[in-house]
Measured scan of single mutants.
Amino acid sequence: QVALSRTQVCGILREELFQGDAFHQSDTHIFIIMGASGDLAKKKIYPTIWWLFRDGLLPENTFIVGYARSRLTVADIRKQSEPFFKATPEEKLKLEDFFARNSYVAGQYDDAASYQRLNSHMNALHLGSQANRLFYLALPPTVYEAVTKNIHESCMSQIGWNRIIVEKPFGRDLQSSDRLSNHISSLFREDQIYRIDHYLGKEMVQNLMVLRFANRIFGPIWNRDNIACVILTFKEPFGTEGRGGYFDEFGIIRDVMQNHLLQMLCLVAMEKPASTNSDDVRDEKVKVLKCISEVQANNVVLGQYVGNPDGEGEATKGYLDDPTVPRGSTTATFAAVVLYVENERWDGVPFILRCGKALNERKAEVRLQFHDVAGDIFHQQCKRNELVIRVQPNEAVYTKMMTKKPGMFFNPEESELDLTYGNRYKNVKLPDAYERLILDVFCGSQMHFVRSDELREAWRIFTPLLHQIELEKPKPIPYIYGSRGPTEADELMKRVGFQYEGTYKWVNPHKL
């Protein structure tokens, strides 16, 4: 086992960053958080920038500027975001240094004079007029057009580079997404736009490419001749908990499936790229999406959770019991969808996408189930092999396979070949997804960000279904809070070829 401390991990990262040409360590950078008073800024962006600063992973002359409508001070920003920093008493001095680099400007999102004030403020910072500028839009999409237009007109660096990070949702359907994309691309070049999907920053999602293309053993079996089906799962054990009003506007397909799960599907299904260059990788992902037809209604199961009468606390409440959810809402909190990649490698292999709230566990994984062994000599005792990439929690890679049961006879039983990170790298604290992705933006690497043509294809696949749901308002199937979801989803999976045995229990190697 390799035991690495946080300091050692960050030392390795620093070495990698400083050796590259793309990370300008000594240049002045300004990180501007648009929507600095909001939840995302408070819980994710400010803490992430602090962790990067604490670990010495930001360029040395980096300033952080918050911008929002609320009249706040840096002290206010500190008060609301610091509880999420997880700072230790030993880091007190470092924390003071961090907040000394912070400033805040209040202004409207659609007022040109406010942006001119913001620009004057940035120019007044040390070497601010020639600094590289990175704008993070932690804002609702309704203000994107006004904000990007004003940034472009008043706040661009004339000497350094300018980059803009856009948070999902990128529209509600193909038409609104196209409108937003066309607007942003009329102001910024594609190499300046970073559409963030934080799932692409997760260690195991990034590991998929290495697993596939750096190991000879997987190449020959990664196709329709050997793989019976692919299941991509995202499960949350909690409901909307008072935030249903926002969720109800989008629903589970827009929230998770059309982005996170579809991105994971691309990494499983794509061909080997010409290189690890950002556009070479994204070219292959677009090719996969172009091979997927629009979702067919007979390959869809929609569910909505109801309270568990035997549960406790939140578990007793259904989705419609959330006071922020519109009365009688038919918005799905669970969806199972089957897609097919219609190309030579994957023809006929079902890709089953499942996601839901208020389920029995927290889990995100990719599961490849292989065909049955031909010419069975073990009297149907063999179960199908599976390769599982567990994204969260407890990152893991393992192969479910058959071995001989101890004893006199040739009785096979299920076991696993474990390729888990935790076994080799004991207690290594890896940077989280937002840390990686923000560092990628500083480096100018777009590999783990969504390109406009990729986004367009993703919406093309799901828009007809979303429009049909909005028009017909089908009643989702009720499922109990804390269950596996509607049984109809299991029946759909069985119908397209997935075999669920229920006889195997994964042993978490992190707890051995």
Rank of each mutant, 00 (worst) to 15 (best):
R456M: 08
I477Q: 15
R282K: 04
L289P: 05
E414C: 12
M264W: 01
V256E: 08
A374V: 11
K494H: 14
L353F: 08
A489H: 08
M270A: 08
E491N: 14
Q468T: 13
K357R: 02
V286A: 09
Q392V: 03
F409V: 15
V300P: 06
G303T: 03
P486R: 02
S415E: 03
R254Q: 00
T333F: 02
D453G: 00
E457Q: 13
E386Y: 00
E413M: 11
A297I: 14
R384T: 05
S275A: 06
M493T: 13
L466M: 10
N360P: 06
W506M: 05
F449E: 02
V397S: 02
R460E: 08
K285M: 04
A364C: 13
G307Y: 08
Q369N: 06
V288E: 01
G422D: 13
R384F: 01
D347M: 10
C266H: 03
R456A: 15
G313S: 11
T399W: 12
D280A: 15
L387G: 01
E342A: 12
Q369Y: 01
P406N: 06
L417W: 00
V391F: 01
L261V: 10
V325E: 01
V441F: 06
G303M: 03
Y319L: 06
I292M: 13
Y479M: 00
R354Q: 03
T503Y: 11
G407S: 00
C355T: 12
G485Y: 02
E457D: 08
D321E: 13
K287A: 11
R390H: 13
D376N: 14
S275N: 08
T399L: 11
V388F: 02
V268K: 07
P393I: 03
Y500P: 01
Q258I: 04
A358V: 00
H371G: 10
M408W: 06
G502K: 10
G375Q: 14
V295I: 14
S275V: 05
I377P: 12
Y319E: 03
G313T: 13
L320H: 13
C355N: 05
F442G: 03
D283L: 04
L471H: 15
W459R: 04
M402K: 06
M270V: 06
E488Q: 10
L492P: 03
C291Y: 13
E284P: 05
G444M: 06
E284I: 05
V366Q: 01
T463I: 01
A433R: 01
V268S: 07
Y500A: 06
V306K: 12
V349W: 02
N298C: 13
D280V: 13
V428F: 13
P273H: 01
H467A: 14
V300C: 15
P350Q: 02
D376K: 10
H467R: 15
Y479I: 04
D283Y: 05
V338K: 14
L439E: 08
S415M: 09
L430P: 15
P323F: 06
V338A: 15
R254A: 08
L368N: 05
M264G: 02
R384I: 02
V388S: 06
V337A: 13
N427I: 07
D321S: 12
R460W: 04
A396W: 02
W459I: 00
E312M: 13
E435H: 09
T403S: 15
I438D: 01
V281I: 13
Y479H: 00
I389K: 02
K290P: 03
E488T: 09
V450L: 07
F351N: 01
N394F: 10
S293F: 07
V325S: 07
E501C: 10
T324D: 08
V373D: 08
Q369A: 06
G307A: 14
G444A: 11
G307Q: 12
F370R: 04
L359N: 03
V325Q: 04
K494M: 15
R390D: 03
M402H: 10
L455N: 09
A274G: 14
H260A: 03
D279M: 13
R424Q: 05
D280H: 12
P393W: 00
Y305S: 03
I292Q: 02
N423P: 15
V341E: 00
D372N: 11
Q380N: 12
V338L: 11
V268A: 08
Y504C: 05
V268D: 01
I438W: 03
Q446Y: 05
P309W: 11
Y504K: 06
G375A: 13
K426S: 10
V301N: 06
N423Y: 11
V300A: 13
Q446R: 02
R495W: 10
G348W: 02
R384E: 07
S445I: 08
K473R: 15
E472H: 14
L419W: 04
F442C: 08
E312G: 10
G375W: 09
V301R: 09
G482C: 05
A269T: 08
R390G: 05
K285I: 04
M402E: 10
G407Q: 08
P486S: 00
M264Q: 06
L265C: 10
H467L: 11
F370W: 07
A269P: 04
T399E: 07
K473I: 09
R254K: 07
G303V: 04
K285A: 00
L471E: 15
P323M: 14
S329H: 05
E395Q: 09
Q380A: 13
V496N: 15
G356I: 06
G375D: 15
E365F: 00
Y319W: 01
D322W: 04
L419I: 07
E271T: 05
D279K: 14
K363Y: 00
L437P: 03
C443I: 12
S275L: 05
E488G: 10
Q369M: 06
M402T: 13
Y305N: 01
M447L: 12
L261T: 05
K404D: 04
A269D: 05
G497N: 15
N343V: 05
E457S: 09
P474S: 14
C382D: 10
W506S: 05
N343C: 12
N411I: 13
E314D: 14
E454I: 08
S483V: 06
T316G: 12
P412L: 10
R436S: 11
D372I: 02
N259Y: 02
D310K: 14
E365N: 05
E365W: 03
E454L: 06
P476R: 00
A396E: 00
N277T: 13
Q296M: 11
P431N: 13
Q369L: 01
E342T: 12
E501M: 11
D310L: 14
F498V: 13
L267V: 08
N343M: 06
T487D: 15
